[in-house]
Amino acid sequence: MKKILFTATILLVSNVMIAQSEVTQEELREHIEFLSSDKNAGRFPGTKANKRVVKYIIKSFKKAGIEAYGKSYKQEFQAKIRVKKGEAPKPEATTWNVIGYIEGNDPVLKDEFIVLGAHYDHLGMGGPSSKSDHEGIHNGADDNASGTAALLEIGERIAANKHLLKRSVLLLAFGAEEQGLLGSKYFTENPVVPLSQVKLMVNMDMVGRLNNENHVYMGGAGTFPGGVELMKNLGEPLGLTVFAHPGSIGGSDHVSFYKKDISVMGIHTGGHPQYHTTEDTVDLINFPGQEKVCNYIYSALMKVATTDYKMEFIRQD
């Protein structure tokens, strides 16, 4: 009887470990529902909600066994807040980037880093970037609670398989992207590792609305050798049609890295009428689609991080 109970316990623990090493729709939903809740009021820099979200990200990293790089997960900076034309300037807001670290195992390649990033902030009640004709909570479920949820889920899967890593991985949740890419700009001006050791930055901004044709879009796939072919080929087994543009670097946080001569990819699932409005809510997220996109991004990252894949920066004009 004891042997049967012991075996059952081992199987139960094993199943839990397998579950934790996979991206799940349930956890994606849990993350996005929290991040885009009315309680968090649009995740605006300098607010209590901003602090609450940062704590949530750190707690999620810790739960997944993802370490801080150095003494703290937080990288504090001051964000200049955008205002409408003619409005008086607002005081700068204190906010943070959140940084997680998963060390590689190769004695040489572990000193090279792959960055996976997403911004967690949004527009609060609106402001000059809003496309709504009225003030209200801009929940930002797709923009960019979806990217933040993907960061947490993919990070958890990488951590569960960290024994496979040759290169190291930094997970970056950026603050104040909506104020002008401020978090990524601050990180690239104040990096925790030498930028020369960052070989690729993969950015996720709006990855929660996969369409019926399973289209995934990205810019920057030509900024490293074989990037376009790699990203198209990895999409096929998952039934994804990948539009991998060599250039078209775009306007999200990966731009800050590209400006520092670092290879980048900015990945998204396309625009929609709810962009920067009060209607970007969790009920419109395609969770089966997002799970598929997360597994796609995981496959791409692991292809580079678990091998000696040749990495060099290729400028795209």
Rank of each mutant, 00 (worst) to 15 (best):
Asp261Gln: 14
Ala19Gly: 06
Glu92Tyr: 04
Glu76Asn: 07
Ser36Met: 03
Leu200Ala: 02
Leu238Gly: 11
Tyr120Gly: 00
Lys259Glu: 14
Leu5Phe: 14
Glu189Trp: 02
Leu172Asn: 00
Arg82Asn: 14
Lys80Met: 06
Ala68Asp: 11
Ser36Asn: 05
Ala19Trp: 13
Thr241Leu: 11
Arg167Asn: 05
Glu229Gln: 15
Ala93Pro: 02
Ala305Tyr: 04
Ile58Lys: 08
Gln75Gly: 05
Ile158Phe: 09
Glu112Ser: 14
His122Ser: 04
Glu153Cys: 02
Met201Pro: 00
Ala141Ile: 08
Gly46Ile: 05
Lys259Asp: 12
Asn190Phe: 09
Glu92Arg: 13
Val54Gln: 09
Ile32Asn: 02
Leu301Ala: 03
Gly183Val: 05
His163Thr: 13
Gly126Ser: 08
Arg43Phe: 13
Ser132Lys: 08
Lys185Pro: 00
Asp38Ala: 15
Leu170Tyr: 04
Glu229Pro: 12
Gly239Val: 08
Gly208Trp: 01
Gly46Lys: 06
Glu27Lys: 15
Leu35Lys: 03
Ser184Gln: 06
Lys166Gly: 04
Gly226Arg: 12
Asp38Ile: 11
Tyr258Asp: 02
Asn190Thr: 12
Asp280Trp: 11
Asp142Gln: 03
Ala160Phe: 07
Val23Glu: 03
Gly42Thr: 07
Leu210His: 08
Gly86Glu: 13
Asp283Lys: 11
His31Arg: 05
Glu103Val: 12
Phe61Ala: 05
Ala305Pro: 00
Ile58Ala: 02
Pro89Val: 10
Arg52Ala: 15
Glu236Asn: 12
Ala149Gly: 07
Ser184Lys: 02
Gly127Glu: 06
Leu28His: 01
Gly271Cys: 08
Tyr309Gly: 07
Ser146Phe: 06
Glu189Lys: 07
Ser21Cys: 15
His215Pro: 00
Phe243Gln: 06
Gly70Trp: 03
Glu87Asp: 15
Asn105Tyr: 09
Asn50Asp: 15
Glu236Asp: 12
Lys59Ile: 09
